[in-house]
């Protein structure tokens, strides 16, 4: 297919990270992602970069795979860098040519902010690449268990979340096929008057909506047929349990977060 979105695409491999309990993985990833916002110093940034690199190696996911799943945001980060470079005027002036002034502070921000965000995104991508949607659903389920105890649909939310991840590529393929078909009928989104473009967007969106409904109907039928019941008592093929590995992961994450916050 012309368009393949790999958000939330699991990458099968046998690594320490893959084998961690999904709850551990999710909690640690979140802690680490939040910790990136505390990084302000070059030393902190270096520590962050090093730890993300170490994670990457430990997860045994090829760098290309990670990059392809975060490619979409690279442009945003690049723009963020350019804005920081041109607009922030702190510290000594490095270059002044006409309207363009580049300062030391601007250069630092152009490095710091994008790298920080990038690191956070890579951590998130690693979580998705090393955890199956079912496992993520289970982790989400655990996170929602206080809701479930209060009588709110925690399990169902978790299932919806996990199915959402599963169906992203399917819908992306549909969108690409429908877009092709409408372009062949002369309905190009990127061309013509505003009215025409809106009509072209509409023709794709409505068709995509209809096709999503079909998927949803089918999915509902499949879930019923496979006896998935809300509030049902499911068992688990691989029941979740915290092990020594998870304790180590928690300790390592805590140390890392502490380090990043201290280095600032």
């Amino acid at each position: 297919m012309a368009l393949r979105i790999s958000v939330g695409q699991y990458y099968a491999a046998d690594s320490t990270i893959h084998r961690l309990d999904p709850r551990t993985k999710t909690a640690c990833a979140l802690a680490l992602m939040i910790a990136t916002f505390f990084v302000h110093s070059p030393l902190g940034l270096a520590a962050l970069a090093a730890s993300v690199l170490a994670l990457l190696l430990a997860a045994r996911v090829p760098a290309g795979e990670v990059l392809s799943s975060v490619r979409g945001v690279l442009w945003v980060l690049l723009i963020l860098a350019v804005f920081n470079l041109l607009l922030i005027r702190d510290g000594s002036v490095l270059l002044a040519a006409g309207p363009i002034t580049i300062t030391m502070g601007g250069t630092w921000s152009a490095v710091l902010y994008p790298v920080r965000v990038f690191a956070a995104i890579v951590v998130g991508a690693l979580l998705l690449l090393t955890t199956t949607p079912t496992e993520l659903g289970d982790a989400f389920d655990a996170a929602c268990s206080p809701l479930t105890r209060l009588g709110l649909p925690g399990h169902e939310l978790a299932m919806v979340f996990s199915l959402m991840l599963r169906f992203i590529p399917t819908l992306a393929n549909d969108a690409s096929a429908i877009m092709n078909a409408q372009v062949a009928r002369g309905g190009e989104v990127a061309r013509g008057s505003l009215g025409r473009r809106l009509r072209a967007v509409g023709s794709v969106l409505v068709a995509l909506m209809a096709s999503s409904m079909n998927h949803a109907d089918d999915l509902a039928r499949a879930l019923d047929a496979r006896c998935y019941e809300s509030g049902g008592t499911r068992s688990h093929w691989h029941p979740l349990h915290f092990g020594a590995r998870d304790a180590v992961a928690f300790a390592a994450t805590a140390a890392l977060v502490a380090l990043l916050v201290t280095l600032g």
Partner: peptide, 27 residues
Amino acid sequence: QNPEDQIVTSVVEEDVAFGPENLGLPP
């Protein structure tokens, strides 16, 4: 008809296990 819509997860064996899990069978 559409196998794509009946698969609930992204690993083959986990998908096969989905039904038995719903039935509450032991691991």
